[in-house]
């Protein structure tokens, strides 16, 4: 806590509230963690192999790419936007990168990652430009590019697929190798989460993302460069989806034109479950990452618990509704208690 200067003359009670909000946010992350642990414990009780090293590693690997995309999505959602094209961007990047590696087998992995980032950033730039300069709502613009980008993948792929045997060994190893028992993919995701977290919480440009989503009108009056920030958000989101495509190719080894189809909704679900407000202004990448992890655990655990496929979907849906309901509830409680703290009645 920072010291609050208290004037000596007849000061009313200090109008505070941040500690309470902190508690709620921490509670939110805590709630996700509890749900995670409960889910894992329940499943492990039925089948102890669920908590074997291999199984945990598989879950984390499965979550790694979703987490990556959820980070990008968080930045966009914070500005009151949404990017539905991430699945298609992932597919495009995965296919083009795999195709490139097939032709140039000597390419080092970092260069492949840069290629994917560049493809994704390009797609993101298109999204951002359409939204900002074309003044098209993000939902509509990215719904359009969802089909456009996917169309490009089909055009490039022309019905063919790239198999593991076509790709260089070193690249495929990157998809499965580990350092100190931790797969590279997970390390990449974690590094991205931390970097994005620092960017959003500690850099002016990052704070501007929150400001834009919190009140676009005030942002205009405050002179925040809305256009530049929005472009940044969509480029970042696209670039991370592009990177996700490279990881996807490395992990699965087989890439066809449908890679990543439908993934965008999983990512949006992860972000919402992770406590990022869908109308912008609040939420963290850590929450979104936890949300992605929770959804992955659920989809892995339910088959073990022999829960029907249908129920899996219903449970994810209930979680999303629950998350939104919780946000609403918490929001009301917080504003009520902030109001109470404001009043001068003791």
């Amino acid at each position: 806590m920072t010291l609050v200067a208290r004037p000596t003359d007849s000061a009313p009670t200090t109008r505070t509230g941040s500690t309470l909000l902190d508690a709620v946010l921490r509670f939110r992350a805590l709630g996700l963690l509890i749900a995670l642990v409960a889910m894992v414990a329940a499943t492990a009780a039925v089948n102890s192999r669920f908590v074997s090293q291999q199984s945990i590693r598989d879950i984390l690997l499965g979550a790694a790419i979703t987490i990556l995309l959820a980070v990008g999505m968080t930045v966009v959602v914070l500005t009151r936007g949404i990017d539905l094209s991430v699945g298609s961007v992932l597919g495009l990047s995965a296919y083009v990168t795999a195709d490139f590696l097939q032709v140039n087998p000597g390419t080092p992995v970092p260069v492949a990652m840069l290629l994917g980032l560049a493809i994704g950033a390009g797609c993101g730039l298109v999204n951002g430009a359409v939204i900002h300069f074309g003044k098209v709502p993000a939902l509509v613009a990215t719904l359009g590019t969802l089909y456009v980008f996917r169309g490009i993948v089909y055009f490039v792929a022309g019905g063919s697929r790239i198999n593991a045997s076509d790709m260089p060994r070193g690249f495929l190893d990157f998809g499965t190798d580990r350092v100190l028992g931790i797969p590279y993919l997970i390390i990449v995701s974690l590094v991205v989460v931390v970097l994005a977290g620092v960017f959003l919480s500690r850099y002016r440009a990052g704070r501007d993302m929150y400001a834009l989503g919190s009140s676009p009108e005030a942002a205009k009056l405050a002179g925040i460069p809305a256009g530049r920030r929005l472009l940044t958000a969509y480029v970042l989101c696209g670039a991370l989806a592009g990177l996700g495509g490279v990881l996807h190719a490395a992990r699965f080894g087989t890439v066809d034109a449908s890679a990543g189809s439908g993934m965008e909704l999983n990512v949006v679900a992860a972000v919402v479950v992770g406590g990022v407000a869908i109308f912008g202004g609040s939420g963290t990448v850590f929450g979104a990452a936890l949300g992605a992890l929770l959804l992955t655990v659920i989809s892995n655990a339910l088959p073990v618990l022999s829960v029907d496929q249908f129920w899996q979907q219903a449970i994810v849906g209930a979680l999303i509704l629950g998350a939104i309901g919780l946000d609403r509830f918490v929001g009301l409680r917080v504003s009520a208690s902030l109001r109470r703290k404001d009043s001068h009645v003791d």
Partner: peptide, 25 residues
Amino acid sequence: NREAAALFARLGVPLDPERPAKGLS
């Protein structure tokens, strides 16, 4: 936060710099 607190002290209002603007009168 320190600079904000100093500004509030100058205005003679004990607002907590760390609280969200949400819910302010």
